[in-house]
């Protein structure tokens, strides 16, 4: 389980799927990753799928990062799956490609016996609640974690994208949550 993918290099493209339920900031996570990739000078594309519910329904956000034009708007296999709920994990684990990386909130997702070799767990929601007083920042912790493990996008671009896309008064705490996740990612690597 120590094969973290820290040295994973993006050759031509990388497909990342963020998943969870409505209200966890899944679509925002995808949006921020996509925006940061563009700021890094890459081609990026973000699509989303959600139910009619603003809160609680199943939800995913796919980010495709590439050095060239992107044709597959809905690829069947992803290089990375981020799951923040058990139902999202169950729905989307099949879309994780062979050798792909799984990142989960370990309090919310139990990958069971089929845990892929490259799996990384973090108590994102718990940390968000205990350290930052708000479960809603779990997505920020998770983004920091994802970023430190994948290293696809520059940390600076991500932090800028976060600052640009959250409410001004919460920007600092969101960034701290991101840093915390990033730090924890570095720790396990």
């Amino acid at each position: 389980m120590k094969d973290s993918g820290r040295n994973w290099r993006i050759e031509r493209k990388m497909n990342i799927r963020f998943s969870g339920f409505g209200g966890q900031g899944i679509i925002l996570s995808g949006y921020i990753f996509g925006t940061a990739a563009v700021n890094d000078g890459k081609s990026a594309l973000q699509t989303q799928s959600y139910g009619s519910e603003s809160r609680g329904g199943g939800c995913r956000s796919d980010v495709l990062v590439s050095q060239e034009e992107i044709y597959d708007l809905g690829p069947s296999k992803f290089d990375v799956l981020v799951a923040l709920s058990q139902s999202a994990y169950n729905s989307y684990i099949g879309s994780l490609g062979k050798g792909g990386i799984l990142l989960v909130d370990e309090d919310l997702v139990d990958p069971g016996s089929h845990t892929p070799p490259k799996t990384h767990k973090i108590k994102a929601t718990d940390i968000a609640f205990k350290k930052f007083g708000n479960k809603i920042m779990a997505n920020m912790v998770m983004m920091g974690f994802v970023n430190s493990i994948l290293g696809v996008i520059s940390k600076e671009s991500l932090k800028k994208a976060i600052r640009d896309n959250v409410a001004e008064e919460t920007a600092e705490s969101n960034l701290q949550a991101f840093d915390e996740g990033y730090r924890m990612g570095k720790e396990i690597n």
């Binding site: 949006y31 990026a44 594309l45 699509t47």
Partner: peptide, 9 residues
């Protein structure tokens, strides 16, 4: 809807 909700450069 695919293009409508697609984010890209």
């Amino acid at each position: 809807g695919e293009i409508g909700h697609l984010r890209e450069n």
